[in-house]
Design a protein around this nucleic acid. Structure first.
Lengths: 251, 251
DNA sequence: AAGGCGCGTTGATCTGCGTCAAGGCGCACT
DNA sequence: AGTGCGCCTTGACGCAGATCAACGCGCCTT
């Protein structure tokens, strides 16, 4: 190890006192944007990162807050949402481990972010990360890809919010969870549902009661089972997918 | 002028037989991504561009079509939309002069695109434009910014689709048009509404009838006037904005 | 001038989901 | 064990917006 690396190493130890410590053993290493970085780049990134924990229900960012920090989600679930003055709420997305939180090309967040359960973040100063993005085209490309994927999901959700029935929405939600929360790209049949019924409702543009009724309906039909609150077994993912896409009878 | 430039110039003349011809006199020059390019870069871009016209109602791209071409909108309006198997339609956005059509980081369009009225495009081969994007970081940055702006708009629209009432949606739509169609960043009071009532409905997650009733309501209240079909005068933009944001009485 | 057609408006009625309200269930206190 | 509190479920009822239907109006064709 040369002198340069030692200096960086000292920097690391100073600014990241919490938990795992080194990027090389990070749990989201392969899922997060860090995956595109070389070992030496990773070390430089490590030097400008720190860890932060938010407890259940804590507000992580306020709407229109000027950005100083952006972050990778190391663990837990974050809900992103918008509010109308009278309190009506729309959740615009959830972030899971490995997802990136924060806008890189604007000085503000356009939404609120709140911890659903306990959340662990790997935080960067936005200016410093932007310097890295300017210097490393492959990092910028990766963040661009992230934004593109988020946009695609948002457009799909617009179809759901504008045109799908309550039953189709709930089925779509579970399919989305199975596709996204799973370890790799193989969807899971047994999924954790960390968010509350009313969060689900605010994501689907429904009320808590309607969501609850639709889930009961799915249980009665035998398409899902609930081993416990917040755990769900999708016994017929293919059928759920058909309902979600609106091809089926149920409307 | 050296040989290289001459060759490029000949290329231009060959592949862009239609209309204006040179980028320097292009009407959307300042609004489109071309704005960030230097004169010599512009000339290289010109060499890989061509013009194309679509008539009213023509399908410009099909969902899941493999991309070969992307484009700048020179004039006219494009609707981007998604369909469910039974025909339910959700418009995910409209493109106006100066907007960019096409994904740069994926091989497919995730939506349909159709001409609303006559549309003129400045078309690029996706691979060639991607080469330029790889070579010119400021171009990539600009396209990234475009995607970010589109995402922000999509998230705002999710709030509309999930939580706003019919009256709020229609007001939001007119406010959006005033803000976006105007020449610069000054919203217009007299706006063209090129799309049909049912397109508006499919953008707002409503039916044509409900849109029509809400517009009639706004006329009765005196907030808008309609000099003609497809022309609208917003006589009290501030009040419309208040309704759009849900602060007002009307629900 | 008459007829037809596309698009928009308006009215009457229906319905899916929201609203309101009453429990139920699990879990953390004491 | 008992009590209280969050969260969820279920039922009864109401309403915003969908659906169904009739008609108006501009414009094109003959």
């Amino acid at each position: 190890m040369n002198m340069g690396n030692v200096a960086v190493e000292q920097g690391c130890l100073r600014v990241t006192p919490l938990s795992s410590g080194r990027c090389t053993v990070c749990g989201v290493r392969e899922a997060a944007f860090c995956a595109v970085l070389s070992p030496s780049e990773l070390q430089q990134l490590h030097a400008i990162s720190s860890h932060k924990i938010f407890e259940q229900g804590e507000l992580i960012v306020e709407e229109d807050a000027t950005v100083r920090q952006v972050a990778n989600v190391l663990g837990g679930t974050i809900k992103l949402f918008k509010l109308l003055p009278d309190g009506r709420q729309q959740i615009t997305g959830f972030l899971f481990a490995g997802d990136f939180l924060g806008p890189m090309l604007s000085g503000e967040y356009a939404t609120f972010a709140e911890a659903v359960g306990r959340v662990e973040l790997c935080v960067f100063d936005q200016d410093r990360l932007r310097e890295r993005m300017d210097a490393w085209p492959h990092l910028e490309r990766r963040l661009f890809e992230d934004a593109t994927a988020t946009l695609d999901r948002a457009l799909d959700w617009m179809l759901l919010l504008g045109r799908k029935t309550a039953g189709e929405r709930v089925a779509s939600f579970f399919v989305m969870l199975a596709d996204r929360v799973g370890p790799k790209d193989e969807p899971q049949a047994l999924i954790e549902v960390p968010m509350s019924r009313s969060d689900i409702a605010d994501y689907l543009g429904l009320t808590m009661e309607t969501v609850s009724r639709q889930i009961s309906q799915l249980k009665r039909t035998g398409l899902v089972r609930a081993p416990s609150q917040h755990m769900l077994e999708l016994t017929d993912l293919a059928a759920l997918r058909r309902i979600a896409e609106g091809s089926d009878e149920r409307r």
